[in-house]
Amino acid sequence: MKILVCISKTPDTTAKIAFTDNNTKFDTNGVQWIINPYDEWYALVRAIELKEKDSSSVIHLITVGGADTEPIIRKALALGGDEAIRVNADSHDSFYIASQIAGVAKQGAYDLIFTGKETIDYNGSSIGGMVAELLDLPYVSLATKFELSGTKATISREIEGGEEICEVDLPVVVSAQKGMAEQRIPNMRGIMAARTKPLKVVEPTAVNALTMVAGFGLPPAKAGVKLVSPDNVEELVRLLHEESKSF
């Protein structure tokens, strides 16, 4: 089986969020970059588990990004990808990124394409669906479990206030979230092996972006907390009822 895992790079979850150039660019100064947690902990690890069950499987990683994404891709290879493809382009337009991924996927004839649930920086939750549409494949989003028997996948996905289980024949695009797998730490052997695994760089195909970032902003700061004495919980309830009208 051939599995493609989409890997993106995001600022570390504790990174300070600030903007430069008149609020048009994210301030990357001092920012640590990580693999987007959903891609790493859930999509990639589940792919590795599938390969552990069926050793004839191969895992390809794809990222659309500049040369600065290579440490991230190496880390993903250390966790267990077999080889990586980097499409050499920097874009924040989901359709542009999805088109690049779909282009590579078309040539690779993958049985399974995993994405994360969303990127924790741009929070689009869009790329999986777009890739699926561009390849005319079924898409199961927000998956919490993925099982395979032969070419039939049984997938659980989140719905509002519950869970849905569905069956679908491969090939399929799946976006992964918590529940799919457990986070792993790369070991020394993996890190050594990753150094020599192939990382192919390809140039992007011409695609028009559909959207553009006009600018960023920060939410207004909170006014400050109003503390209520622990001996007067009724006062808190009164404030929530009368002042903030929360219930």
Binding site: D93, S94, F95, A98, N123, G124, S125, S126, I127, G128, G129, M130, V131, A132, E133, L134, Y139, S141, L142, L210, T211
Partner: peptide, 19 residues
């Protein structure tokens, strides 16, 4: 919405803002 809107965006080549 997260499952359909991106598909429709790619289908119609219509720009999507999610969230």
């Amino acid at each position: 919405g997260k499952a359909i809107a991106p598909r429709l965006s790619a289908r119609l080549k219509a720009g999507l803002v999610s969230g």
